[in-house]
C-alpha cells in the first residue's frame, strides 16, 4: 500500500475513532458522574444513606465493570440494534462503549468524591446548605482534579475499547488495523495505525495531566 492509499483511510478511521470516543465519553460523564456521586451519598453514614439503592447501584456497576468488553459488546448487539437501528458502524459502537464506560467512570468518580474531607461537608451543612449545595459547591469542585484524572483514564480505556469494537464492525482505527493490517498482511499499515492510536492516547493523557496540574497550581497560587 502506498501512502496515498493509506491517507484517506487513516483520516476516516481517526475521525470515526474520535467520534466514538467523544460520544461515549459524553455519556460516561452523563451517567457515571451521578452514579458515582450517588454511591457516596447513599452509603452508610452518608447524607442520603440508603442501603438498598446503594447495594443495587454497587452490583450494577460491578457487573458492568467485570464483564469483558468484547463479550459485552456482542451481548448488547440486540439492544444496539434496537436503539440505533443497526449493529454496525461507529454510531452503533457508541452504545456498548457508553455502557461499558459509565460504570468504569462511576467507580472513579466515587473514589474521587469519597476523598473530599467530611469536615467540608459539615461546614456546608452548618451554613444551612442542603444536599444540592453539598454536591455542587463542595464535593464536585473539591474533587475536580481527581475527577479530571479519572476522566483521562476513562477516555484512554474507551479508546482501547473502541479499537476492540473494530472486531464486530464498529469502524474506526480498530477496523482498519484488522481488515487491512491483519487480514491483508499490510504490516506498514498496521504499524501506522498503531502509531496513530499511540499519538491519540498520549495526547489525551498529556491534556488530562495538564488540566489537573493547572487546577492544582491555581489552588496553590497567591492571589
Amino acid at each position: 500500500m502506498t501512502w496515498d492509499e493509506m491517507q484517506p483511510l487513516l483520516e476516516q478511521g481517526t475521525i470515526d475513532t474520535l467520534y466514538m470516543v467523544g460520544w461515549s465519553t459524553f455519556y460516561a460523564i452523563l451517567g457515571g458522574l451521578p452514579i458515582g456521586v450517588l454511591l457516596v451519598l447513599t452509603d452508610r453514614g452518608g447524607p442520603l444513606a440508603n442501603v438498598i439503592v446503594n447495594k443495587v447501584l454497587g452490583v450494577v456497576v460491578n457487573i458492568g465493570r467485570s464483564l469483558p468488553f468484547i463479550i459485552m459488546m456482542v451481548a448488547l448487539i440486540p439492544f444496539t440494534r434496537f436503539v440505533v437501528g443497526t449493529a454496525v458502524g461507529p454510531t452503533a459502537a457508541v452504545v456498548p462503549l457508553a455502557i461499558g464506560a459509565i460504570p468504569f467512570f462511576a467507580r472513579l468518580v466515587e473514589t474521587a468524591v469519597r476523598e473530599v474531607d467530611h469536615g467540608l461537608v459539615e461546614a456546608a451543612w452548618a451554613m444551612g446548605g442542603g444536599t444540592w449545595t453539598v454536591v455542587l459547591k463542595v464535593l464536585l469542585p473539591q474533587a475536580l482534579p481527581s475527577l479530571i484524572a479519572g476522566l483521562t483514564t476513562t477516555v484512554i480505556a474507551v479508546i482501547g475499547y473502541s479499537a476492540m469494537a473494530g472486531a464486530v464492525g464498529g469502524g474506526g482505527l480498530g477496523t482498519l488495523a484488522l481488515t487491512y493490517g491483519y487480514q491483508r498482511f499490510e504490516d506498514t499499515f498496521m504499524i501506522v495505525t498503531v502509531a496513530v492510536l499511540i499519538v491519540i492516547v498520549t495526547a489525551v493523557q498529556l491534556l488530562g495531566d495538564l488540566a489537573v496540574r493547572l487546577i492544582r497550581r491555581r489552588e496553590r497560587a497567591a492571589g
Partner: peptide, 30 residues
C-alpha cells in the same frame, strides 16, 4: 445532617460555626 428540612437549614444560617481544622474549600479563593 444534609437531610435537614428547610426550616432547620434556615435556622442554621443564623448560627455561625468555626472549626478546629478551619474547613475551608481549597477550590475557592478566600
Amino acid at each position: 445532617g444534609s437531610r435537614a428540612a428547610r426550616p432547620l437549614r434556615l435556622a442554621r444560617g443564623g448560627i455561625g460555626m468555626i472549626f478546629q481544622h478551619f474547613n475551608l474549600l481549597s477550590s475557592r479563593t478566600v
